[in-house]
Each structure stands twice: as C-alpha cells, then as structure tokens.
Amino acid sequence: MAGHAMNQIFRAVSILFLALLPVACGGPAPPERAPLDGVKIGGPFSLTDQDGKARTDRDFAGRYRIMYFGYTFCPDVCPTDVQTIGAGLRAFEKQDAARGAKVVPIFVTVDPKRDTPAVLKTFVSAFHPRMVGLTGTPEAIAAVAKAYGIYAEAEKPNAEGGYLVAHSRFAYLMDPAGKPVALLPQDKTPKDVAAELDRWVR
C-alpha cells in the first residue's frame, strides 16, 4: 500500500514537473542584436549648424540620431533620400510621439565650400522641422566623413564652375550613446524607414 501511495505521489510530481517545464524553459526571448552592433562607425565632431551655431556630438547625447551625408546642390539622390528620411520620421512620430521625439535627423554636408549655414537652413527646413544641418571646414568635414566611413570626392568643375560630389549613400541610425544601430532604408519608402525606427528606437 505504501509502495502504491509512493508511486502515485511520484506520478503526480512528474506530471506537475512536466506541466511546469515549458514555463521554466520559456520566458522572454533575448533582445535582438542590432545589425551594426560592434561596428566602428561614428565618433566626436565639432561642426556648425544651419543657424551658425557651433555643435558637437555631445549636443545630441541621449538621443537617437539619423546621420545622413550629402550635399544641397545634389541634383537628384540627396533630396530624394532626405525627403524619405523626413517623411519616415514624421510617420514614426505620428505612430508613437514619445519615441519619435527621441530621434534627431542630421544632414552633414560633404560640400562645405557651397553649403553654408544659410544654404543648409533652406534645405533642411524643407524636409523636417527638427532636421539639423551641419557644415564646417573642409578638414572638419573630412574627419567626420572618415569616422562614419563615408567616401566623398568632388568631380572636376564644368565650364560654369559647377560640379558634382561623388559620395557614399548611407543613413545611419545611431543610439543615444552614439553607437551605430542599423542602416535605414532611405532608398525605399517612408513606411520602410518608419518600420525600421519602430524596430530599434526604445
């Protein structure tokens, strides 16, 4: 009889253990690893914004940053990309105002000779009210471009003195500590940009 009782107890404990096993082995999934986690992109900079104010990377500490490099005289790609970024951020803000407010869109020129603060102000204000335009000395721009792995080279001027600038086409999402998170799909649609922001902005 005692043996029968022990068997029943053992069976009950086994059933209870098996019932609890999925719970014990489950729990929340580990956080998704960011695509650019550990990649050496970014760094300190000291530039000038569209209002002529000195700005450094420390001014944006604690906020996510969208870093895009281009130039205002670009005939097609840059305005299209920046429009997509601005519209994507607006869509994300509409979806989640609190998280959207944590994101700062930043346009860094690769053509400081022509992109003065006044020129940048007209350009960035057309795409998002909080977009920051940054310019600086050729040396300062070259340094920040190098830190972000951006290639930029001005082509030979034409007879009128105009020229194009060949450059990398990336939009980096940086975290509040200034570390790279992911590349935003600025060559797709605003909806794609908003979806990627929703995925990574906490």
Rank of each mutant, 00 (worst) to 15 (best):
Y172T: 04
V201I: 08
R65I: 09
T48A: 03
F127S: 05
P79Y: 04
L89M: 05
V104I: 13
I15N: 01
I85D: 00
R169H: 05
V144R: 08
A101K: 13
A61L: 04
G26N: 07
H128R: 10
R55C: 05
L36P: 01
G133L: 03
S168E: 03
F69T: 05
A142V: 06
P44N: 09
F73I: 09
A147S: 15
M1K: 12
A166S: 14
I9M: 13
A101V: 04
Y71M: 07
R63A: 02
A87K: 13
V39K: 15
A171M: 07
P30M: 13
L16D: 05
E32N: 06
A166Q: 12
G161D: 09
E139D: 14
G26R: 09
P28V: 10
P112Y: 01
D59W: 14
L16P: 04
I41T: 13
E93F: 00
S125D: 14
I9A: 14
G26S: 15
A19F: 15
V193G: 07
F60M: 04
T109F: 01
R202H: 12
V82T: 13
F127Q: 04
L20W: 15
E196H: 12
V124E: 09
D37Y: 15
P44H: 10
E32V: 15
F73P: 03
Q50A: 11
A143L: 09
A29R: 14
G27P: 08
K113Y: 09
P117M: 08
D187F: 03
L47G: 07
F69L: 05
A91G: 07
D198C: 09
I85V: 14
P28G: 05
L164K: 00
D81Y: 01
F107G: 03
V132I: 15
F170M: 08
L36G: 01
G178Q: 12
R63V: 03
F127I: 06
D192A: 15
I66V: 15
P75G: 03
K53H: 13
D187H: 14
